[in-house]
């Protein structure tokens, strides 16, 4: 991947990420998040990880965020505009994010992976879908199935909880 593209998409991704939290309009925030996801998936594609890149778009930009937007559209947006900054929340939020940055820096200082670039893969067409599938269904089969059951339970739970009794 050309470094120009890398910096371009990184900058765009971060800019959209910032605009997610700076925008007062929830729809604008949601759309910025979508744009940020798209840039992220462009970064994945630049690393020849097409599968992850496409799944990023398909699941997050295409399904999750559409649902978000769907809900936001049904809300009263003006309430959000009227709200003022809460100083306590501001301080608390900055503390939490500062803590997160410190933790991240510590991890990065121990973990040398970012120090030098990975060697090129050496294959023209990476068979990443097959690799992911094989790994998922052999080495991580049990955790995978367990997660599936957990999500199913959660889905059933949500339906049961949200269903109103019909008179």
């Amino acid at each position: 991947m050309s470094p120009i593209l890398f910096w371009l998409f990184t900058a765009l991704m971060l800019a959209f990420g910032v605009s997610v939290i700076l925008n007062r309009n929830p729809v604008a925030s949601a759309l910025s998040l979508v744009a940020s996801f798209l840039c992220l998936s462009a970064l994945f594609v630049g690393l020849d990880a097409f599968f992850i890149g496409v799944i990023q778009v398909l699941v997050y930009a295409g399904a999750v965020m559409v649902l978000f937007l769907f809900i936001i559209m049904l809300l009263d947006l003006r309430a959000e505009h009227r709200r003022h900054f809460n100083r306590l929340v501001l301080v608390g939020g900055s503390l939490v994010s500062a803590g997160f940055v410190i933790a991240l820096l510590q991890v990065l200082s121990v973990f040398p992976a970012g120090a030098k670039p990975f060697p090129a893969l050496g294959v023209a067409r990476l068979d990443d879908v097959r690799q992911v599938g094989i790994t998922l269904f052999t080495r991580f089969n049990l955790p995978f199935q367990t997660v599936g059951v957990l999500i199913l339970v959660a889905a059933v739970g949500v339906i049961v909880l949200s269903r109103r009794e019909l008179k």
Binding site: F51, V57, A61, V66
Partner: peptide, 25 residues
């Protein structure tokens, strides 16, 4: 000629809904 062709098609198709949602909203 990417090796996730059909997934790409689905991903882009799922993006297509934004135009309609935004127009409506």
């Amino acid at each position: 000629d990417v090796n996730v062709g059909i997934l790409y098609v689905f991903a882009i198709a799922s993006i297509g809904v934004y135009g309609i949602v935004l127009a409506g909203w």
